[in-house]
Write a protein that binds this DNA or RNA. Structure first.
Length: 786
DNA sequence: GAGTTTGAAACT
DNA sequence: CAGTTTCAAACTC
């Protein structure tokens, strides 16, 4: 299936996005369990793409055209330690050297022969990002280098610490959007695919050089990379990735059948001759990657294993004990690298990529799921580097969500330049206003995709018109039927996230403040800063659609700041916490509901969920027949308020008590006269307020208008009020008259009372003269007009 | 703004 | 599950 149009493919940026995947070791922290996706854990919130894919395979395969941009997919899994993977450089040359190799540490081996290509087409992933380090690693150890022929693939070390990863990207010869024709000249050049998975934190950069082992690949091969998600629990265990490469040559008929996938750590390409090839690096259980036809990416950690998850998150702590959710999926299409990293709760992990590398990295992620035989699914996710990736934590959810700042994918387009060499650097990611954030909507597996209406990007330069460049946030889906937000109504910056509570969550709106906090958080650092402007998103405070409020309602009103003093904002007493929000601009004391106390917060979330799995679900459910049937999920227990005060959750939600309520003396029912009276009073009060507001507005308008109209005008005296004639000069003259009159009284030795009388009398005369003048001017004006 | 009331959440 | 305590919001003055 072609999800992505060829044009879109052409738009794919040449740059490679730095990717990092962190996997935590679950063992160290007890808290982590709640947060991370565990392989077979049902409780985890599934993150799904809008459209679930049937296959779990992620294929990064370009169509047969050699012009396809190379794609690199990298995923690294660390064991507890934060991993920094940086792609320092990616050079693509037109050389069509066949072959790629992969030699990783002993565990991973590529048996398939590859021709070794020199330094060309190399992508280096290194933790440190220093070239020196890479060199050292190279010399010292067993560098893993995968070289492929033109447009071919790179593979990376997986799960081996200390193993340098070198990716060599065969050059396609043309950048997307740029002169592609040049690349087409080599039809047989196999398309390049890069897959790096499961690398541990200790990945050492290795520069792929000619000397490395190479397995020869058949030219004209279509390669599909499949990466399976790593189970978080297997921290020490080698990560298995599935990389499927399907080789397809343009000229040759690509086999439509998918080649057998080889699972295991070992990358093998057995028969070089065989056109389709599959390399599997994956763990058997979970594959987090899926392709979505709708160009949507979904992350479903647990429940829907067959889904593609693309998330890049910086994990908050440097703490090695963190668990990491193995969501990392990297797929690269066309010279794009998708990096997914997810960390678990725990302390924030800082991901640092070398400056050098980050510069060259493009913030675009592309996910391709693929079909064999040239079918392509592509999901392009613009990723921004460090400032652009932001972590979002939702209570109850076991995932950290990443907010992707919009980046322009079009950079490649703008680059008319060099087909032969596409430097990753060329396109600098444009950080678009955060308001343009686009999110993918969590979806229940069976549900149709939902997506937030894309918002036009406003980035200044290098913007591709394609909508796919927009940012998206991927989140787990949960079934909250009552919350079927109209996503189009969401404000920019609003993030959709699973309602905490897991299980059956439908949709939840996560306030953009999360993003804000994330932005502000030092922990959220993805790739090294490439000088990208930090996203300065508008922070809309959207609330979870609690209390039966529609999303629009929830988003339209700002959340009230809490005033918690004793709960540390980590109990459901705190509305912020209960709504799955971080405290922001609150009046609370000793607040732990923030990123700085993520560990405690996650623990508290877990505690709440243990106590009540529905704790974070909206209390007001939507009835079957519409809003009128909205009712409190548990019912209220009011005793003294008659359910006619805001103490009552039903009344507060503007719904009537139902049979499940246990309230005493309830007056909050349809026929209740008290309720009707209250409603009338409320309505009357509201009307009164509105009227007052309108009156004030009108009065203000009138005053303004009056002032405008009465402003002295030089042009004519028509319509001018008498006082408008009291100009400065007139005033001065009047004062002089009065002073003169005072002097006169003084000279004549008048009494004080008489002096005052004389002055006042003079003042009266002055006024009369002013008024007379005004009347005369008005008459003149009238006569003129007539 | 301080104090009181209220009922959900938390605890036993 | 019931009773009690804690807590923060709602409310009153």
């Amino acid at each position: 299936m072609d999800v992505v149009s060829p044009e879109l493919n052409s738009l794919l940026p040449d740059e490679i996005m730095d990717t990092e995947a962190i996997e935590d070791v679950p063992q160290s922290q007890p808290d982590e369990t709640a947060v991370q996706s565990e392989p077979s854990d049902d409780t985890s919130v599934p993150m799904e793409t809008d459209t679930p894919l049937a296959s779990e395979n992620l294929s990064l395969c370009s169509d047969a055209t050699s012009t396809e941009p190379t794609q690199a997919l990298t995923t690294s899994a660390t064991t507890g330690n934060p991993i920094a993977v940086s792609i320092s450089t990616a050079t693509i040359t037109t050389d069509s050297v066949t072959g790629t190799i992969v030699s990783t540490s002993g565990l991973q081996k590529l048996t398939a022969p590859f021709t070794i290509s020199p330094a060309n087409h190399q992508i280096i992933l290194n933790k440190v990002a220093s070239s020196q380090a890479t060199e050292a690693a190279k010399s010292a150890g067993t560098p893993q280098v995968i070289k492929q022929e033109g447009q071919k693939l790179l593979v990376t070390a997986i799960g081996k610490s200390g193993q340098p990863i070198v990716l060599q990207l065969p050059h396609t010869g043309s950048k997307p959007g740029a002169s592609q024709t040049s690349g087409d000249t080599k039809p047989q050049t196999p398309q390049f695919k890069v897959v790096t998975l499961g690398a541990r934190s200790e990945l050492k950069p290795v520069v792929g050089s000619a000397g490395n082992q190479v397995t020869t690949l058949q030219p004209q091969q279509l390669k599909t990379v499949q990466i399976a998600k790593k189970t978080p629990t297997s921290s020490a265990a080698p990560i298995k990735f599935i990389i499927t490469k399907t080789v397809n040559s343009k000229g040759l008929s690509s086999p439509t059948s998918v080649p057998p996938v080889i699972a295991g750590r070992v990358l093998t390409q057995t028969s070089p001759v065989m056109p389709p090839r599959t390399i599997t690096l994956s763990e058997p259980h979970n594959t987090s990657i899926q392709s979505i036809a709708g160009k949507k990416i979904a992350i479903s950690p647990l429940k829907t294993p067959s889904k593609v998850t693309v998330v890049s998150v910086a994990s908050p702590t440097s703490n090695a004990s963190q668990k990491s959710v193995a969501l990392p999926v990297n797929v690269a299409l066309g010279q794009q690298i998708l990096t997914v990293q997810q960390s678990t709760s725990g302390s924030p992990v800082k991901l640092a990529t070398s400056q050098t590398t980050t510069q060259n990295i493009k913030p675009v992620q592309s996910l391709a799921v693929g079909g064999v035989g040239g079918s392509q699914f592509k999901t392009i996710i613009p990723l921004a580097t460090q400032p652009n990736v932001q972590q979002i934590q939702v209570p109850g959810s076991k995932f950290h969500y990443v907010r992707l700042v919009t980046a322009t994918t079009a950079s490649s387009i703008g680059q008319a330049s060099g087909p032969s060499t596409s430097s990753i650097q060329t396109a600098k990611p444009m950080v678009v206003n955060t308001g343009a954030v686009r999110m993918s909507v969590p979806i229940v597996p069976a549900q149709p995709m939902k997506q937030v209406a894309p918002k036009p990007l406003t980035s200044a330069a290098q913007i591709v018109t394609t909508t796919q460049t927009q940012q998206r946030l991927i989140m787990p889906a949960t079934p909250l039927p009552q919350i079927q937000p109209n996503f189009t109504n969401l404000r920019p910056g609003t993030v959709l996230a699973p309602a905490p509570g897991g299980g059956n969550v439908g949709y939840a709106v996560v306030p953009a403040q999360y993003v804000t906090q994330l932005q502000q958080s030092p922990f959220v650092t993805l790739a090294g800063s490439s000088g990208f402007p930090a996203s300065t998103g508008v922070q809309t405070q959207a609330r979870l659609p609690l209390n039966g409020l529609s999303t629009a309602e929830a988003t339209s009103r700002p959340r009230k700041p809490c005033n918690c003093t004793k709960s540390q904002c980590l109990k459901l007493y705190c509305d912020c916490f209960a709504n799955g929000e971080f405290c922001n601009n609150c009046n609370c004391n000793n607040c732990f509901n923030n990123l700085e106390h993520e560990t405690e917060r996650l623990k508290a979330i877990k505690t709440c969920l243990d106590r009540n799995p529905e704790a974070f679900k909206p209390k007001i459910g939507k009835g079957k027949e519409g809003e009128s049937d909205r009712r409190h999920s548990k019912g209220c227990n009011c005793k003294r308020s008659g359910c006619l005060k805001n103490y009552c959750e039903c009344y507060e939600a503007k719904i009537m008590c139902s049979s499940i309520c246990k309230c005493i003396g309830c007056k909050n029912f349809e026929e209740s006269p008290e309720r009707k009276t209250l409603m009338h009073l409320a309505d009357a009060a509201e009307v009164r307020v509105q009227q007052q507001t309108a009156a004030k507005t009108k009065l203000s308008s009138q005053i303004s208008d009056l002032l405008m109209r009465t402003t002295p005008v030089n042009s004519s005296g028509g319509g001018r009020l008498p006082y408008t004639f009291v100009t400065k000069e007139v005033l001065e003259a009047t004062c002089e008259c009065l002073v003169e009159q005072a002097k006169k009284a003084e000279q004549t030795f008048q009494s004080q009372a008489e002096a005052e009388r004389m002055i006042l009398e003079e003042f009266g005369h002055c006024l009369m003269r002013i008024i007379s003048s005004a009347g005369k001017a008005k008459a003149d004006s009238a006569s003129i007009s007539c």
